[in-house]
Structure formats: C-alpha cells, structure tokens
Amino acid sequence: MENIRDTSGDLIQGTLDMLILKSLMRGAMHGYGIAEWIHQMSQQVLRVEEGALYPALHRLELRGLLSAKWGASENNRRAKFYQLTAEGKKKLTSESQRWARLSAAVAFVMQQA
C-alpha cells in the first residue's frame, strides 16, 4: 500500500490535487469520503493520509477550485462537503490530459529493454 504524504515533491502534491478533483467529479463529498473513494478506486493501493488530505483540500478551496458547504452526512452528522467549481472542472480536464501524457511517456521509457 502506498501512503500519500504531504511532502513538498511537486509530483505527489500535484497528483493528490488531481485525485481530489477527480473524486469530486460525480458530486459533492466530505473529506473522509474523498479519502475512502481514492482508497477504493485504487484498489486499496493508495491511502491518503489525513495530514496531507486536509491541507490539500483547503488549499484547493482557497484557490477557488473547490467550494465548500456544510451539510448533513449519510449518518446525519454535520460535515463539510466539497464541490468542484467551474474553475475546478477546467483544472481537472487539463490535469487529466497532462497526467495521461506524462504516465504514457513514463511507461514508454520504462518498457524499453
């Protein structure tokens, strides 16, 4: 299992942001849900540490890529729900493209004998 920590490495930082944006593509979600979703979707390979998740979420909120609203969770608790803004969606698109290009390139290099 890979733990995503809050390091200053640009790749990891940028990647976590991208994963968060991606997780919110289908609608608003709280922080716990986002972490769980990434964990599930990566087939338990990626686990986002809380110490990395929340700073990333708040940074994205500050940058205007996410908007936040308080609401009731599935088990009726007060929770903060995050949602993609128009800017966030744009960012997600460009990030996905960039990631696709990058990962293909890395894979290509690694496949060389």
């Binding site: 709280h30 922080g31 716990y32 809380e50 929340y54 308080w70 969770s73 608790r77 007060r78 929770a79 903060k80």
Partner: peptide, 14 residues
C-alpha cells in the same frame, strides 16, 4: 470551530 468540526467528523467516521 469549522476546522475542529471537520477533523472531528473525520475521526468519528474512522
């Protein structure tokens, strides 16, 4: 308060 609530919620879910 918001920060505390958010973190508490996460812990509760865990």
């Amino acid at each position: 308060r918001d920060l505390a609530d958010e973190l508490a919620f996460h812990q509760a879910m865990l």
